[in-house]
């Protein structure tokens, strides 16, 4: 059994809250820059140029790319042969507290969804824990903005709706969202599982690098097909028209019940942020 002090998790979460908010990952940058090269519509070109300039400024000056520095989604893959010394949730929240303070990040969490008083330190984190083989801990911090989160959708389709039903639901979700989620967006899709698992898969799909496609050919082809359909909508960057409505469609799937076909769409803006460390 490998022992890992909880304080190491605090330190890693603190570092990643800051770095994820100020440095856009390379895969997202490459995708935006490729989209700019393919974009023919002049207003859209101008917006993509500003978006590229913006993440350059953020990185150079270590300032947040976007003022919505999000709720901290923290994914922990904990090896079964690891023992964490100390309370885990407190360790993660302490990392968020320190990171958001040190990084001059916005505190955007309210204690109670109805009473709506700000917690003042961006805690608690949204924690996702998975047990995996091995003796490592893999931590991903993904600050999630709510302009795009609010445009996310879930539907329990009938098995007879099939792949066409999934396709229509995803394209419709992006079209109805229009300019609201700060396009160009990243479309995370979860198919199968249960009601809640489908939503989780959609969020997990947003963690996958934009240049990595689904392993199974069925879903790889569906990702490509959906990206083409979404980019034929004409919504464009910021909704001012153009080809670049989405940067990528990432699909994750799970087995499901004979009676069901759950589908969830979790949208992310062009500031698709995440950082990962392995302890």
């Amino acid at each position: 059994m490998r022992e890992i002090p909880a304080s190491l998790i605090t330190d890693a979460v603190q570092r990643m809250c800051v770095s994820a908010n100020c440095n856009l990952p390379g895969d997202v940058r490459r995708c935006i820059e490729q989209s700019r090269a393919c974009e023919q519509w002049q207003p859209a070109q101008g917006i993509l140029d500003k978006i590229i300039e913006n993440y350059g400024i953020a990185e150079q000056n270590s300032v947040p790319i976007c003022q919505d520095t999000g709720v901290a989604c923290v994914f922990l893959e904990i090896g079964q042969d690891v023992h964490i010394e100390g309370p885990l949730r407190e360790a993660v929240d302490e990392g968020v507290r320190r990171g958001y303070e040190q990084g001059f990040l916005r505190k955007s969490v309210v204690r109670d969804p109805l009473e709506r008083v700000n917690t003042g330190d961006n805690t608690p984190a949204m924690l996702y824990i998975d047990l995996v083989p091995g003796d490592k801990v893999r931590i991903t911090v993904a600050p999630k903005g709510f302009g795009s989160e609010n445009m996310s959708r879930i539907k329990m389709l009938r098995p007879s709706d099939g792949i066409e039903g999934v396709r229509d639901f995803v394209v419709q979700a992006v079209e109805e969202a229009g300019p609201n989620p700060c396009p160009p967006v990243v479309v995370g899709v979860g198919i199968g599982g249960t009601f809640d698992k489908a939503a989780f898969l959609a969020k997990k799909a947003l963690m996958r690098p934009l240049d990595v496609r689904a392993e199974k050919p069925l879903y790889r082809e569906l990702e490509q097909d959906l990206l083409e359909r979404v980019n034929a909508l004409g919504v464009g960057p910021q909704g001012f028209g153009g080809r670049t409505t989405a940067l990528a469609v990432n699909i994750e799937w799970l087995p499901t019940h004979i009676a069901g076909l759950p589908v969830a769409v979790n949208l992310n803006c062009h500031v698709t942020r995440h950082a990962t460390e392995v302890l």
Binding site: V63, P64, G147
Partner: peptide, 22 residues
């Protein structure tokens, strides 16, 4: 419609883009 990030020393304001208007 904006909720900026806290200003770093030397800045007038932190990052300050628009929030969704609806």
């Amino acid at each position: 419609f904006v909720g900026p990030t806290p200003a770093k020393p030397g800045q007038a304001i932190g990052s300050a883009g628009p929030t969704t208007s609806y």
